[in-house]
């Protein structure tokens, strides 16, 4: 095992599991090896405004270039999938408090640096408008219209106490890490943003 590419490394890991009888990742290893070369999965984890911007720019451009694209929204990144008009969420006090401290929705993201209590994002919005830069929300909509699959993380949804109806329309069913890893094992390159 020298310079194994990511998918191979993951396949090896899967093979090392005690599941001796399960030939799960077999198909990709056989004749159709490069079949997923024209696809991309982005793991949107940070939830930061500028990184979510990068995620939506890459996803929409990849879709425009004919690639099969998915975005897995997890942890803080998950907040981008909550309807922007949804002010709070959660069932217990911790979840409710978290939602108050961290307003959900793709229109309410914060910069990882220079946020300055919202001054940073406000200025970014102004500049974006001036220079004709589409905002993350518009880009995500555009990406979805071009067939980008939006995968919400089931675990994040449970942990934050967010319900399916709190999420924006047009997205796929919630999934877990295994789905993402399955795609990577099949040869889809992954970006962790």
């Amino acid at each position: 095992m020298t310079v194994a590419t990511k998918p191979e490394a993951i396949e090896e890991l899967l093979h090392e599991e005690s599941l001796t009888a399960a030939p799960a990742p077999e198909p990709s290893a056989s004749t159709e090896a490069p079949k997923k070369a024209n696809s991309l999965i982005i793991i949107a984890e940070s939830g930061d405004l500028e990184k979510t911007w990068a995620t939506t720019i890459l996803a929409s451009t990849a879709a425009a270039s004919g690639m099969e694209v998915s975005i897995f929204f997890t942890f803080w990144g998950f907040m981008a999938l909550v309807k922007p008009e949804k002010r709070t969420f959660g069932e217990n006090w911790m979840q409710k408090m978290m939602s108050v401290m961290n307003r959900p929705g793709i229109d309410h993201l914060k910069l990882s640096r220079m946020n300055f209590m919202g001054m940073g994002p406000w200025m970014m919005g102004k500049l974006a408008k001036q220079y004709g830069v589409a905002k993350p929300g518009e880009l995500l909509e555009m990406a979805m219209a071009m067939g980008v699959k939006i995968l919400p993380c089931q675990m994040s949804m449970d942990m934050y106490g967010i319900k399916r109806e709190d999420l924006v329309d047009g997205i796929d069913e919630p999934v877990g890490a295994a789905t993402v890893l399955g795609m990577i094992a099949d040869g889809t390159p992954a970006l962790f943003i």
Partner: peptide
């Protein structure tokens, strides 16, 4: 015109 990356490409693709 007056659109920034990635909109010219995205609109072209559409």
């Amino acid at each position: 015109r007056n659109l920034s990356c990635p909109m010219p490409i995205v609109k072209t693709a559409v």
